[in-house]
Computed example of a mutant assay.
Amino acid sequence: MSDSIRLIAGLGNPGEKYVGTRHNAGFWFVDELCRRHGGSLRSDARFGGDVGKITVDGFDVLLLKPQIFMNRSGRAVAALARFFKIPPEEILVAHDELDLPPGTLRLKRSGGHGGHNGLRDICQQLGSRDFLRLRIGIDHPGPGNDVVGYVLGRPHADHRTAIDEALAQAVALTPAMLAGDLDKAMQQLHTKA
């Protein structure tokens, strides 16, 4: 099993209505990778998403922002992975995470979907749970509150700033992730002060 990453998929919902909403935190990560590394994305109907490629420290990596709704995003990830013969172990999925505070990131190897509809569909479409996840903390609205309304809402300015700062740190650690040095990346992300 390789630990190198060949595909980074950022999850979100397409359309102007959802720009800037918490559920699109995975899109923000891919956008920041493009900004920092001179990448651009183009719509590709074959894969149901916006696709691009960047080179980071000599490592080529495909980028994907599915342009189908979150609960069907696995179709785009699986289509691209099949076309380029990328096994699940070489895929990193960046997604919003209710169980982490804003500004907190966690890398996770494999696992379940934790109720996240995008992850659920990716697991089903890939036929595997063995992909890497970049969990981007967006906080939880609290017991009894409307989770759907919360994730589809925009974060407060201080939360967005914390998320953006965390994403900048994740982008800085991307070379380690692409090289397969996931333990180093995890240690640095997980011990952030």
Rank of each mutant, 00 (worst) to 15 (best):
D181A: 11
L119E: 02
D60L: 09
C123M: 14
A157M: 07
I68A: 00
D50K: 13
G180E: 08
C123K: 06
G142C: 12
Y150K: 06
L132D: 01
L33M: 12
G12R: 08
R154S: 10
C34V: 08
V171P: 04
R135K: 15
H190Q: 12
G153A: 14
A94Q: 04
I68G: 00
D57R: 15
V56S: 00
L41M: 11
K65E: 07
E16D: 09
V171A: 12
P88I: 11
G74Q: 04
R82P: 03
L62A: 10
S43A: 10
M177Y: 05
H116T: 08
G74P: 05
L64T: 06
V56N: 06
L11P: 00
A172N: 11
A78K: 04
F69I: 14
A179E: 13
M186Q: 13
A157K: 15
S110G: 15
H116S: 05
D158V: 12
E165P: 01
A25T: 02
K184A: 00
A179N: 09
A94N: 06
L126G: 00
R129D: 02
V61M: 10
R46Y: 08
G153H: 03
I136E: 03
A94H: 05
R72K: 15
H23S: 03
G49F: 01
K192G: 00
D146H: 12
A166E: 02
F29H: 05
D146F: 12
A166P: 02
V51I: 15
D50C: 10
V151S: 05
D158L: 11
R154N: 05
L182I: 15
W28R: 07
P14W: 08
I54N: 04
P101G: 03
A170K: 02
V61G: 05
T55R: 15
D121Q: 09
A185L: 08
G118C: 09
E32N: 03
S40C: 03
A172Q: 12
D57S: 15
